[in-house]
Simulated scan of single mutants.
Amino acid sequence: MTPDMLARAGEALRHGEDWRRPLARLLGPHHPAGPRNEIDPRMVSRWASGAMEIPDWVPEVLARLTRETGERLLDVADELDAEAEPRPRI
């Protein structure tokens, strides 16, 4: 995983806001050494800058989290479509 792909995943999961600290919280429960509230946000920043290599477990977790988020968003969009009243054509 490249720092650019890490940033793309982080921005997608956090809707473009500053994604490093939220990503540290999202990854914490999935840490291979055991769940935690978060991983050190400075570590995520180091990965993003290329100063440290991104661990092998991170891409798999981010792929799963991104898929789950996408599925939830699609479910909400479907519900919104179902509730929308048809608009008369003019």
Results as ranks from 00 to 15, higher is better:
residue 79 E to K: 15
residue 19 W to L: 03
residue 44 V to A: 01
residue 27 L to D: 05
residue 36 R to Q: 10
residue 81 D to E: 09
residue 26 L to Q: 06
residue 1 M to G: 02
residue 54 I to L: 08
residue 80 L to P: 03
residue 64 R to K: 13
residue 56 D to E: 05
residue 88 P to N: 09
residue 85 E to M: 13
residue 69 T to K: 11
residue 82 A to D: 05
residue 78 D to L: 14
residue 33 A to L: 12
residue 87 R to T: 12
residue 73 L to D: 12
residue 48 A to H: 10
residue 71 E to A: 13
residue 6 L to D: 08
residue 54 I to M: 10
residue 9 A to V: 07
residue 13 L to R: 02
residue 7 A to D: 08
residue 6 L to S: 10
residue 58 V to R: 13
residue 42 R to V: 00
residue 6 L to R: 07
residue 18 D to M: 04
residue 19 W to F: 10
residue 44 V to C: 01
residue 21 R to W: 02
residue 84 A to D: 05
residue 29 P to E: 00
residue 65 L to K: 07
residue 59 P to L: 05
residue 21 R to S: 00
residue 28 G to Q: 12
residue 38 E to L: 08
residue 75 D to H: 13
residue 18 D to I: 08
residue 71 E to C: 04
residue 83 E to A: 14
residue 84 A to F: 11
residue 27 L to F: 03
residue 49 S to N: 12
residue 71 E to W: 06
residue 88 P to E: 14
residue 9 A to M: 14
residue 82 A to K: 12
residue 41 P to W: 15
residue 8 R to T: 04
residue 37 N to K: 09
residue 44 V to D: 00
residue 74 L to I: 05
residue 35 P to E: 14
residue 68 E to A: 15
residue 1 M to W: 00
residue 58 V to H: 11
residue 40 D to Q: 07
residue 27 L to S: 02
residue 59 P to S: 07
residue 16 G to E: 07
residue 44 V to N: 00
residue 44 V to E: 00
residue 33 A to D: 12
residue 74 L to R: 15
residue 67 R to D: 09
residue 55 P to F: 09
residue 21 R to Y: 03
